[in-house]
Design a binder for these strands. Structure first.
Lengths: 349, 349
DNA sequence: TCCAGGAACTAATGCGCTTCAGCGATCAAG
DNA sequence: CTTGATCGCTGAAGCGCATTAGTTCCTGGA
């Protein structure tokens, strides 16, 4: 190692003990709010610690039984799919707000596949790196909750749905089915009978929930409904392709619902190119609100939810779990439809 | 703490020692490739370790002098400014690729201000949490390199520019000045003489470099050049406002250069709304290429750079620093102009 | 035949912290 | 006035690993 300026040794509890004229144990008791020292000593120790700029070494702390003061967050998506989506960074912002209060760190990792993600969990567990993890993009037959349960690693599944109850892991979810129901109701009210849902990755839990909900709604509304879903990889490319395909069909839909903002914008562009006027010929809805929705003309109507708050809630649940609370399933507010300029009455047949 | 299923104790070196019938020290030697054990013993120990799924506890390792096996990454921007920008997640992807090879963790934090960022560095340092950090968004009179030098925390400044040489911290940068020069040259070639640069946050180092470069270029091209920069907060809102302002002026520019993709798209929309045809009346260039640039009509010409590679390079430099190498200043390839449909010859006066 | 020297391994120590078992001193209860 | 309990504190052990200082055994050179 090359010589760095001012090695700047970190102060330890021993330094505090010496300066305060007490034993190390007393320092530990004082600083951790444990009984065993008088109030005056406690206060004196605190002052010395502060004056020295002392902070506990997480490593030492962890080695003597405490946690790692860190939670893990893995996202398994290819780098390019990750890029444009505003969802993750917003979610992380919310998570951070809660973690920062407790001085917990966030260990973040991007991987390619769920298998890699599981490997990361195993490594983190074996290396004692994290006290708990936040899991996103749950899917059908997901190996992750089982693995985390096996490892005894507290976890919160984000977007899991009410069915995904696993002992030891909490779930935070939005009622996609309810949102889909009210969205379809509204489109019906506007006269739309042929609706296509351009969904995201097929095996994700919330994708499947939305698809199922759409089907249920269609059945509820009777036989004249002509609705269906197509799945994509969330990319603008597949969205445009899917849009061209469905709009080129015999009886094109009069309303399109996209599972994220990027796809909605790409779809809008594709539709416009094909000569469809929005919203006169075609209504377009994005299932994710962001600045993007107001960057295109016409402004996109969107299902809006508080993503930052979503992250906050998830992190809060993890905190509760780390504090020894029971695993729970909590629901965040249902996304609300913001009607802008891309939706309107269906053109009469 | 509630009972969790299968506490699943992590195996330690002691377990390995017992199973392999040797002392703990022998295990340590064997597993760390140090001399002191025979090849056969080494191999046996390795097998036992693997079989037990052993991984070194980072905490213990760290406590006995090794590093934390973690690097830190702080971004100081308000949550909403963060959202749409594809830059950060791409950068992180690149960083991760390098870190993953070495099994290093990435500790990530979002804060509001540079002061908060400094506080985070201090805390990380005092808590022994990271071996080094990656610094983004360097600015004029930046307190961060000094602080990190003082703490002896190896750091790589991303986007620092050649001037920001600090002992102990490396710099990875793109030649914005060169890119600006070739961009202006090209616009001149197309006949543009009135150019406005809608820049990002005023105090950021690369913003200032670009503004300075633009001025230099203007002087080089002589007195008939009418170019200037306006600064914003990178948001679509400020971009649209700035665009309306400059286009409403007496002699509106014939070319607009935006410091990121979101602003370019917002500016394009604003210009279109004011009745400017792109590229007939007005050329538009984005200083950041992303899917967004091909989501709008016309497709945006953009300065494209390999952001993932940028992250890779930065992480690589940090690795070199951690290995005891000297601080360096390395330059990544100059962004290249991808001419799509938003740029064309200036309309003759 | 004896010893130097190296190879292969063990024992002991320390990193910074928490925690548990003491241990005087003080104090209320019997 | 004695007995136990309680308070305020100290000493020591231990967490999982790296490392240094032994220790034992073996080999080869004289």
């Amino acid at each position: 190692m090359p010589a760095r300026r001012s090695p700047a040794r970190r102060p330890t509890m021993k330094d505090i003990a010496r300066r305060a004229g007490v034993s190390e144990s007393a320092v530990s008791f004082a600083l951790n709010g444990r009984p065993g020292v008088s109030e005056v000593t406690r206060e004196r120790v605190r002052r010395v610690a502060e004056q020295l700029g002392w902070r506990p070494s997480t490593a030492a702390r962890q080695l003597s039984g405490e946690g790692a003061a860190t939670v893990g967050f893995v996202v398994a998506r290819p780098a390019d799919t990750l890029g444009v989506d505003s969802f993750f960074l917003q979610l992380i912002s919310g998570i951070q707000e809660v973690l920062a209060e407790r001085h917990l760190g966030l260990l973040f990792q991007v991987v390619e596949s769920v298998e890699d993600e599981c490997a990361v969990y195993r490594r983190w567990w074996a290396e004692h790196r994290v006290d708990g993890v936040l899991v996103v993009d749950p899917r059908a037959e997901d190996p992750r909750p089982d693995l985390l349960g096996e490892l005894g690693l507290p976890a919160v599944v984000i977007g899991g749905g009410p069915d995904s109850r696993q002992p030891g892991t909490s779930t935070v979810w939005a009622d996609d089915a309810g949102a889909m129901a009210s969205l379809v109701d509204r489109l019906y009210e506007l006269g739309h009978r042929r609706i296509v849902h351009v969904a995201g990755l097929p095996r994700l839990a919330h994708t499947e929930r939305r698809i199922r909900a759409l089907r249920t709604e269609a059945e509820r509304h009777g036989p004249q409904a002509r609705v269906h879903s197509v799945t994509t990889d969330y990319s603008d490319a597949e969205s445009a392709a899917a849009t061209r395909r469905v709009l080129g069909a015999g009886e094109p839909p009069t309303a399109l619902v996209y599972d994220n903002d990027v796809m909605a914008v790409a779809g809008l562009a594709a539709a416009t190119e094909l000569g469809f006027a929005v919203p006169a010929d075609l209504s377009v809805v994005s299932w994710e609100d962001s600045a993007l929705c107001r960057l295109v003309k016409p402004w996109l109507s969107a299902l809006s939810r508080d993503t930052v708050g979503f992250g906050r809630t998830a992190a809060g649940e993890l905190m509760a779990l780390l504090d020894g609370g029971p695993a729970r399933t909590v629901q965040v507010p249902v996304p609300r439809l913001i009607e802008r300029d891309s939706t309107g009455p269906a053109r009469p047949h």
